[in-house]
Amino acid sequence: MDLTKEQLLVTYRKMRMIRSFEEKLSELVTAGKLGGFLHLYAGQEAVAAGVCGRLDERDYVSTTHRGHGHCIAKGVRAKGMMAELFGRSTGVCKGKGGSMHIADLEAGMLGANGIVGAGIPLATGAALTCKVKNTGGVAVAFFGDGASNQGQFHEALNMAANWKLPAVYVVENNGWGEFTPTEFVVPVKDIAVRADSYAMRSDIADGNDFFDVYEKAGLAVEAARAGEGPTLLECKTYRYYGHYVGDPLAYRSKAEAEKWKTERDPLDAFESRVVGDAMLEAEELRRIDGEVTAELDAAVEAAENDPLPDPASLYEDVYAQE
């Protein structure tokens, strides 16, 4: 594995930030401090961190309604995200987007998306831009098992394969599409096989193992940069929270979730690997835990005290000023 100590520390910080960010949001909702629909990414951190670990400033990602993790992994700052979720004018989208539309184009983050599957063609278009402008960039679409049943998925993959676009399609199969088990609505065992219809390369990674995702994402990104066209990378993983915050989770057994959390946790797995192999020391990780907690507490405090949007801004940014 070609990871330096610095990269491992950065990776752990991202995964911890994602986990703590989502836990903090869950607390804030319970305390009645946040409104709107929130879909938490906890449990899937290794996918966002593993794939984004292969990307740089030339590259783009699009994501889903469950998009906070991809934002953090692509470099969007927690402070601006938290202010956005509090609906403040200092939010990364000036309080106009919220959780389901959080975006930061400067970080190459093309937005969370409230429409299942809609981020897939957006990333495909970004890949077309990279190709036409010859930037060397790659575009990654993150989406769930549910989105792989959408027409947008099939239409975009067909086009991207046909045009050999520098794209990577990352399907995070967490076993649940909203409240429905994936096996109820997807007739294939591995979503990766859907790539065969488009003569597209595919791969399957353990989505709870950062190192497996990082390795396979590396192959996909490298192929895309080399002009060999797109890859469909399926990452098998698990969603810790319900579909949204407040979901009573009546449809899912507690035992199933507990098993994933205790036996397959991506942060635990990362730690035991890096500490076990003496790549990092546990104290270094605890120090990061403390820094992340402090950063998040500061982000919440700032967001709570930041100004609300001016009501007149309701009318702004519908059209360009021309």
Binding site: C93, K96, A103, V318
Partner: peptide, 8 residues
């Protein structure tokens, strides 16, 4: 454009 606070 609107959802992204005028940045798109």
């Amino acid at each position: 454009r609107y959802m992204f606070g005028g940045k798109a």
